[in-house]
Nucleic acid binder design. Structure first.
Length: 287
DNA sequence: ACATGCACCTGGGAGC
DNA sequence: TGCTCCCAGGTGCATG
């Protein structure tokens, strides 16, 4: 599920729930007192008991997003960072609610509530970092596409650095540009009328500009449409493929192979592969 | 240095 | 119904 717009939505959704809250450490997941579902969940290296101790009594100063990372700034110069990867979801629930099969960690909040990371595929992670650790995580990330600083010359420079790569590979590369994932990469290429298989060096100047405009337009629209959704139940990833179609976000090509292209209304959307990722495009609109 | 491809997990859905 | 196979929205690392 989560690309930039979805992570942004999660951040906005949980901010009023946890800002200013004093954390109570990790809550047990089962009767035997396990604090995490599997060891690799904690990416910052602490044992679960130590992480729990370090979190206890820390206050949440603010919540923000960087690329697809959820950054929960705490006092004492610490940051609790969460990556949802593909199937992760973040909920604020009553502490007494039954622990779900895919709940990976529960962080105690005031008023007998908990911040729960649910993640079927166990790719998601959490970490508690100091300022240097957080800077290290962010150092590898490219620019934020919705920042004012992300102007056309910045985008052209990114493309110039990767002349032989397919445009979709660059859109997906978090070190080149932060926050775009497989859904919006396809949607951006379609909106820009550029085939995802095109090599960056072969793009015309107007195509570079169209991609730049589409990156901003598609992501901005998705963030805006998400903001109308009351909670994550409306933002997909409930389990079935194409759950995103129940979301309020307009999707024109992603996983719509075999359907008529909604733009030209003539050609049929085709599925192909870029790298290992399923790719969807209209052969007529995206030469 | 850069491009590619698979490994990491668990499950849903399609097809037989 | 039940089996097998294919596919899955994100990275990280090994390989060329």
């Amino acid at each position: 599920m989560p690309e930039l717009p979805e992570v942004e939505h999660v951040v906005r959704f949980i901010t009023p729930e946890i800002e200013g809250a004093r954390l109570r450490g990790l809550l047990p997941l089962d009767g035997r007192g396990a604090l995490v579902s599997h060891a690799k969940l904690v990416r910052s290296g602490q044992r679960p008991a130590a992480l729990s101790e370090q979190l206890a009594a820390r206050r949440v100063r603010s919540v923000r997003r960087r690329a697809k990372l959820i950054v929960i700034e705490l006092d004492a110069g610490l940051a609790l960072v969460i990556h949802l990867k593909i199937t992760g979801k973040l909920w604020v629930v009553p502490e007494g609610r039954a622990v779900g099969r895919h709940d990976r960690v529960r962080i105690g909040l005031p008023r007998r509530r908990a911040l729960v990371l649910e993640d079927m595929r166990k790719f998601g992670w959490i970490g508690l970092f100091d300022a240097d650790g957080l800077a290290g995580l962010c150092a590898k990330l490219g620019p934020e596409p919705l920042d004012d600083a992300f102007r056309l010359p910045v985008w052209r420079a990114i493309l110039a650095r990767r002349p032989k790569s397919k445009i979709k590979a660059v859109l997906l590369d978090q070190a080149a540009l932060a926050g775009v994932g497989n859904i919006y990469a396809d949607e951006i290429c379609h909106a820009a009328r550029v085939s995802p298989h095109r090599r960056c060096a072969e793009l015309a100047g107007r195509e570079e500009a169209a991609l730049h405009r589409s990156i901003r337009k598609i992501l901005t629209r998705a963030v805006d449409e998400r903001s109308g959704a009351p909670d994550q139940k409306r933002v997909g990833s409930g389990g079935t493929r194409r759950d995103w179609s129940e979301s309020p976000v307009t999707i024109k090509v992603f996983q719509r192979h075999g359907e008529r292209c909604p733009t030209c209304r003539r050609a049929t959307i085709e599925r192909s592969v870029v790298g290992t990722r399923g790719t969807h495009a209209c052969p007529r609109c995206q030469p």
